[in-house]
Design a binder for these strands. Structure first.
Lengths: 222, 222
DNA sequence: ACCTGAACACCGTTCAAGT
DNA sequence: ACCTGAACACCGTTCAAGT
């Protein structure tokens, strides 16, 4: 028997081939995004999303099996758009140093999130809860490729022999540092960006220009 | 006018002075923890929690203004217990190296989470969503003190001049790396622990024993 | 084939009545 | 002062009827 493996999993009900269907899905997602940006999660419910999208609640449920499926689709779409945005920077990036390139990427990331700050924060917060239903493998792969290429260009300066591992760590580190700044009432993005760049340089054991610290000293017991 | 600032904020309704009240609160939280560990968030609802706790739904709402307040209280209590557990290790820890001490802390953290793995994962996932209602300042301060003391003991070997910043970064980095391992079906904790220790050592620019990599090399443009 | 929205179901929350 | 649980309200979801 061929059937949907998990009953009620928050995945799209059908992949639409017709233009009208796609328009309905887009309208629902745009409405959901608007509601989340304007009123936060508290204001987001299926009836409001359907109304704002200009479709009946029944039509909404034709394409999304449940409320979480809308969030899942939103997160996946936005992640893809985010990767697009970073890829753009990476293509034109060929700065003097890894720090410069990384800084440029982070600045773009900040600018991107800042277009819809509340939506971004809400979806980031929901992502953990919805993780098992998300499929971000392709998009993660794209981001890993961007960051990996960046690190690879400076491989000779890296201490970590495993480039893939370093890439994953750098991705996690930068994300957690930037998200922790996003939680503040009035985030100081330039400062957070510099701290993140510094943390990554530290992690990669790359000396910043003008840094005269004792890189060669190892940890001495007691 | 003195009044509760945020209407319906998920905070305890009253601080109980009587033993019976405290017992009711404990029963509700224990019931909630059991339900979350057994059935996940999907199985957690206020009626089920009240029933399992052996109190009426009305009594539950006497102490918790809403469902999220139960989660908030659970997260805060568990975070405090977690800090207790790590403090225990830190007190008796005085290993040969920072890596050893850190490894011991992480092993304890893993063991602690492993007592109720599903509960831990669920609460970690909910924490982002509930962040604005959580007050973990005291507990974060305790963890920072533990980690800060550890790093301070090896201050001479650190490259980062700002110990507080380094402490915060190390806390964020270890947490994100360990949580990313927790998402796997069958986490490999020893490997994740070693990777986290390695990431921190890298971040702090401390050479691991037997590591012959080129610490002195700085990033060369192009 | 797709849309509609009234109706249903579930559960979060309240409140009148009890002790 | 505290407890109780039936009742209410809100919203997620369905489905019979329409086109």
């Amino acid at each position: 028997m061929t059937h949907v493996p998990i009953q009620g999993a928050p995945r799209p009900r059908k992949t639409p081939s017709q233009a009208r269907s796609r328009a309905t899905i887009d309208a629902v997602l745009a409405a959901a995004a608007h509601i989340l940006e304007t009123g936060g999660v508290a204001a987001f419910n299926t009836n409001a999303a359907a109304e704002r999208a200009g479709v009946s609640i029944g039509s909404l449920y034709q394409y999304f099996p449940n409320k979480d499926a809308i969030l899942v689709a939103l997160i996946e779409r936005r992640f893809a758009a985010f990767a697009d945005s970073l890829a753009e920077v990476a293509d034109s990036a060929d700065g003097a140093s890894l720090a410069d390139d990384l800084r440029r990427l982070l600045q773009r990331a900040v600018a991107w999130h800042d277009m819809f700050p509340r939506l971004s924060r809400v979806l980031d917060a929901e992502e953990g809860r919805l993780e098992e239903h998300l499929d971000l493998r392709v998009e993660h792969g794209r981001l890993d490729a961007i960051l990996g290429a960046l690190l690879g260009r400076h491989r000779h300066a890296l201490r970590c022999p495993d480039l893939d591992l370093a890439t994953r760590h750098v991705a996690l580190i930068t994300r957690v540092l930037m998200e922790s700044e996003a939680r503040f009432e009035k985030p100081d993005w330039p400062a957070a960006t510099e701290r993140a760049v510094g943390a990554v340089m530290g992690y990669l054991s790359i000396r910043a220009p003008g840094d005269a610290s004792r890189l060669t000293q190892s940890a001495a017991p007691d």
